[in-house]
Structure formats: C-alpha cells, structure tokens
C-alpha cells in the first residue's frame, strides 16, 4: 500500500514537473527572457505610453510619431542605441541604412513596377527611428550618428528621451535591459521594435530582414513589392 502511494506521488510530481517546465518555456517556445518578451508582444501588443523625445533637430516629438508626418496607418521600425557604441549599434546602423535603401529607392511611383522583386517602395509609410538610451548623448551626437549612416531625414530620425524617468518606464514596459560594461560602455539586448498604431506589435533581431519584410507585408498589404 505504502508502495503504491509513493508510486502515485512520484508519478504526480513527474507530471507537475513536466507541466511546470512546459509553462515556464511557453511550451518549449521561449527558453530565454529575450524570446519570452518577443513571444509576449506577438500575443499581446504593448501600448506605448505618451513619451516625449527630443530629435536630432532638437524638436520635441512623440515616441509614436517619429517624423510628425506619419499617417495613422504607417509603421515605425525603432531601435535603441547609444552613439558611442563601437559594436552592435554599428551593425544595427548599417542594417538600417540598407533597410532605408530598400524602403526608399527614390523612384517615382509610376516606376515602382521596375523595382526588382523583394524591394519595397514604402518610404512614405515606413519610418526608421533610432532612440538613444544614453543620457550623455547630445542632440549633436544624434545628428552625427545619422550623418555617419547617410540617413535620409525624411525616413530616418534619431532621438533621445526628454526625461530620464521616461526611459526607465520604457525599459520596464518593453523589457529593454542595458548593463554598463567598462570597455565599450553598455551592453543591451539589441532588437528592432515594430510600432503600428501606437503599439509595439513585434520585436525582431536587427538583422532578421525576412522577418521585418514579413511584418511590413502583414501590416501594410498591397502597394509595391511583396515579400
């Protein structure tokens, strides 16, 4: 009898353990905190708070409205940077520059059909935004940053937080983690945040071009180019 009770409790603890591990990894989908926050955003987009930024021209703008001309149906691809960053932000900047070229080839609309397949012509609908989390970054630094990557100001802007407390709130809400690192400055979980209608709808690797194209097609169907 004792034997059977113990066999049952053992089996029970095995089941509970498996269920706990399955719950703790979202059914094997999210083993790291990074993959967990990406999964969570896909399931439940994060509504961005009313946060004021200062852009490279020193003008105030809302986080959800990077170029002030954005129509409600547009997408913003946002990433967090610091301008001194010697490592991953360089790669992210280069990636944005290449994305900018793809998004806005400069061709007039009647010639869209000449674009090779896979290229988008969405300069009017998709904007790029680099947000610095480094309080030491000045407006000048932001300007330099954009110049360094030949940013087209009608598509790509850079900004910093007007208030430090807003940065802390955004970090908390988006799961952005920045840790100081003596030799380079900061280490942060780099990613591209896709903002649509004031909400973060996807978080992707900065070099996941296919994923970025897919999200654009998903939210902005039609017009030139497909995936």
């Amino acid at each position: 009898m004792q034997y059977w009770v113990s066999a049952a409790t053992s089996f029970l603890s095995l089941c509970v353990g498996v269920v706990a591990l399955a719950w703790g990894t979202d059914g094997g989908q999210a083993w790291t905190a990074e993959s967990a926050r990406r999964l969570a955003v896909l399931e439940q987009p994060v509504v961005l708070p009313w946060v004021t930024l200062l852009n490279q021209q020193g003008k105030q703008q809302q986080l959800t409205d990077p170029l002030a001309s954005q129509s409600a149906s547009g997408l913003t691809l946002m990433e967090f940077i610091y301008t001194r960053c010697p490592t991953v932000c360089l790669a992210m900047g280069a990636e944005f520059r290449s994305l900018q070229a793809e998004l806005y080839s400069g061709l007039p609309s009647e010639r869209h059909s000449e674009l090779p397949s896979g290229l988008y012509f969405r300069g009017g609908e998709v904007k790029l935004l680099s947000v610095s989390f480094d309080p030491e970054d000045s407006i000048e630094d932001l300007k330099h940053y954009l110049t360094r990557f030949s940013a087209n100001p009608s598509i790509w802007s850079a900004a910093k937080f007007a208030r430090q407390s807003d940065l802390e709130m955004i970090k908390q809400q988006l799961g952005l983690i920045v840790i100081p690192e003596p030799s380079v400055g900061y280490i942060h979980n780099s990613a591209v945040y896709v903002i649509y209608d004031g909400r973060v709808v996807a978080i992707l690797d900065h070099d996941d071009r296919k994923g970025i194209r897919d999200v654009i097609s998903q939210y902005l169907p039609g017009t030139a180019g497909s995936g």
Binding site: Q2, Y3, V5, S6, T9, S10, S13, L14, V16, G17
Partner: peptide
Amino acid sequence: WVNRGGICGLIT
C-alpha cells in the same frame, strides 16, 4: 507513505 525510497522527492 508519500516519499518511499526518496523517489518522489528526488524527482521534485
């Protein structure tokens, strides 16, 4: 009764 041979506990 519930942890004979320590099996249940070790699994947990």
